[in-house]
Computed example of a mutant assay.
Amino acid sequence: MNNVLITGFTGQVGSQLADYIIDKTDDAVIGMMRWQEPMDNIYHLTDRINRKDRVFIKYADLNDYVSIYNLIESTRPKFIFHLAAQSFPRTSFDIPIETLQTNIIGTANLLECVRKLKQQHGYNPVVHVCSSSEVYGRAKVGEALNEDTQFHGASPYSISKIGTDYLGRFYGEAYGIRTFVTRMGTHTGPRRSDVFFESTVAKQIALIEAGHQEPKLKVGNLASVRTFQDARDAVRAYYLLACKSEAGGVPNGEAFNIAGEEAFKLTEVIELLLSFSSRNDIEIVTDTDRLRPIDADYQMFDNTKIKNFIDWKPEIKASDMFRDLLQHWRSEISSGRIPLNR
């Protein structure tokens, strides 16, 4: 049984990846987290964790080099899925330095640990560096984004991910570390953080249905068109790419777009989510606190490259994904876990 390390284990994507590995492989999951992180997305795994049944929690912090080194040195995972980040673009305008520190320096800390262990002990794992489609920023309307599209940072977050992206490529090319980089488009589904657009819309609908919010749906900029995909499809691509890299089929530092193939205007996302509700009195209002100083308004992607490397395509329909997301918030609220209205 091999170890697989997931940084960002408690997030939506990290927890979905853990579920995939447990279900589809014989590997053990090493979930990296900080001691104070919320456990909401991994409560379904706590019985396994308590029994030490293929899921293990290890405490470390990307900004603490020693903790990262000790974690990797002691567990020697065959795959490292580096998903941990300050991941909310809007928040990055309020905490730009922390965003840059965690996402760029934190990634450098992790890659430096791998480099040192490779140099000293010949340890050579596959390292997945999770970048973001936000690196493309303010793309031209009508342009299908591929891996050669020029970067255009549109937030401190996107700039931090540009740095992360380059680090993944550099450590692969310069030091022979088996890295690959992914730039995932907008992804959602159950466990999506409530600060992201489609999740906050679904959350507010569920709050209104339960009588915890007046029937006013607060939104920011709706002048955006983008593809959506289910995170459960994306993690399958992550693992397949890692296996391909282990087999020598992915050049070090190679980057891949991973995106859905169903596109929506944000107004259409709202209409679809509202269509799943029996409430017909919900008013849509603009909340200036939800607006970014600059926005990535157009994100349509070309998945050709990843399909040339692995047998993958999105399988979960967007309508099912959005319905599952709304049901996730209904379940949370019915269980007494009332989320903040943000």
Rank of each mutant, 00 (worst) to 15 (best):
S67F: 12
F301M: 13
A108E: 14
A108H: 15
S155M: 03
L145S: 02
A154D: 08
C130L: 13
D320Q: 08
Y69I: 06
L62H: 01
K78I: 11
N257H: 03
E98L: 05
N3S: 14
K313M: 10
V250W: 02
T188W: 02
N303L: 11
V181N: 01
P96C: 10
A259W: 08
A174P: 10
T10H: 08
P156G: 14
K52T: 07
S193A: 15
D295H: 06
P339G: 03
L5E: 13
G189Q: 05
D19Y: 13
T46V: 13
L45Y: 10
V127N: 07
S275A: 02
G106I: 05
L5H: 07
C243E: 15
Q204E: 04
T7R: 09
K140H: 02
K203D: 01
I104C: 12
V219E: 01
L340R: 04
L217Y: 02
I6C: 08
K24I: 10
Y136R: 05
T149K: 05
Y65P: 07
V126G: 08
V141N: 12
S199P: 03
E209H: 04
Q86H: 15
S199F: 01
I310N: 07
R48M: 12
I68R: 04
E262T: 15
D148Q: 15
G248S: 07
T164M: 14
F276T: 01
E268Y: 12
Y171P: 11
G14I: 04
F322R: 01
I6T: 07
H128N: 11
I95M: 13
A210Q: 02
T267E: 15
K140F: 06
T149P: 00
G336R: 01
R226Y: 06
Y65T: 05
K317G: 14
F301L: 06
P96I: 10
K118R: 10
Q327W: 02
E283I: 04
S193W: 14
Q101N: 15
P215E: 01
H128S: 11
D324M: 12
L326N: 04
G163T: 11
I104H: 09
T186M: 14
D47H: 05
D27V: 00
I162P: 05
F93M: 08
R138Q: 09
P125W: 10
D297F: 02
R192H: 08
G172M: 00
D324F: 09
L326I: 06
W312E: 03
K313N: 13
S155N: 11
P339R: 00
N341F: 00
F81D: 14
I42Q: 02
V181Q: 00
S277R: 03
L291F: 15
A234D: 03
I49S: 01
I6E: 12
E147T: 06
S160M: 07
